[in-house]
Amino acid sequence: MDDSPAPDLEPTEVVVERERRRRRDIGSTFVEIVVTITLLGIVVVPVMRSVILSITASSVAKQASEVETALLNAVDRVNRAPFTRCDYTEFARAAVLTQGWSADEVSVEQSYLDVGTDLFVPGTAGPACPNGGHRRDLIQQVAITVTSPNGDVTRTIEVVKSEI
């Protein structure tokens, strides 16, 4: 752009014209600001939703990992418990207590195999033993369920114990 004075303008008019051009180039108009904010909103909102979804998924995955660790610890304790036991609840509870959770976060369902019906039934001498108590040919089933402290994640596993 040529800043030399136009032939038909006086030198003071040239200065005034330059000042007018400079003022037009300063700052932004209201419309430009509204368009910019709208475009930012269109881009930022989906990005923020993605970030929030990612954080939520990560939190649930962490909880699931902790529940599965507690569940495997409970299974290990039940497997190592003496076979002569008729109730394995205390072993499963000990596993979640070592995680720093409440004993209420675990539930245990126990039964034994009734050879007459080939069905697992709850015991009478203990949850996993028949009326006569422990027998050498006894097959026990222990279902362990662990729930995360906030209740979002629950996992269950069944363990079969036998001396056969």
Rank of each mutant, 00 (worst) to 15 (best):
Q140V: 00
R135T: 10
P127D: 12
T145I: 15
A143Y: 08
A143V: 09
V153F: 03
G133Y: 02
Q140L: 02
A128Y: 06
G133E: 02
P127R: 12
I139Q: 11
T147G: 00
G151V: 12
A128V: 02
P149H: 09
C129P: 01
R136P: 11
T145V: 11
G133L: 11
I139Y: 07
R135D: 10
T124W: 04
G126E: 08
N150D: 10
V146M: 03
I144A: 05
C129I: 14
I139S: 13
G126Y: 07
R135C: 10
S148Q: 07
S148E: 05
R136L: 12
I139W: 06
R136Y: 14
A128K: 05
V146A: 02
H134K: 15
R135Y: 11
N150P: 09
D152A: 06
A143W: 08
P127L: 14
Q140E: 13
P130I: 00
P130D: 01
L138N: 08
P130A: 02
S148P: 08
H134D: 12
C129W: 04
G151Y: 01
P149A: 01
I139C: 07
I144M: 06
D152W: 03
P149T: 04
V142P: 04
N131K: 06
C129N: 03
H134T: 10
V153G: 02
A128G: 14
T145N: 05
P149C: 02
G133C: 07
A125E: 03
P130V: 00
P149D: 05
N131G: 12
T147C: 03
H134M: 15
V142I: 15
N131E: 09
V142A: 13
N150Y: 07
G151W: 01
S148H: 09
Q141F: 07
V153E: 01
G133W: 02
T124V: 13
Q141N: 15
V146F: 01
D137K: 12
T147S: 01
Q140G: 11
L138P: 03
C129E: 04
T124Y: 04
N131L: 11
I144H: 03
S148N: 11
C129T: 06
Q140M: 07
Q141D: 15
T145R: 11
V146H: 06
Q141V: 10
D137M: 14
I139K: 06
T124R: 01
R136M: 14
H134P: 00
H134Q: 13
Q140T: 05
G133N: 05
N131P: 05
V153Y: 04
T147N: 00
V142M: 10
T124Q: 04
S148C: 05
A125T: 14
P130S: 07
R136Q: 12
A143E: 12
C129H: 02
G133F: 05
D137T: 13
P149V: 00
D137W: 08
I144R: 03
D152F: 00
T124H: 02
Q141K: 09
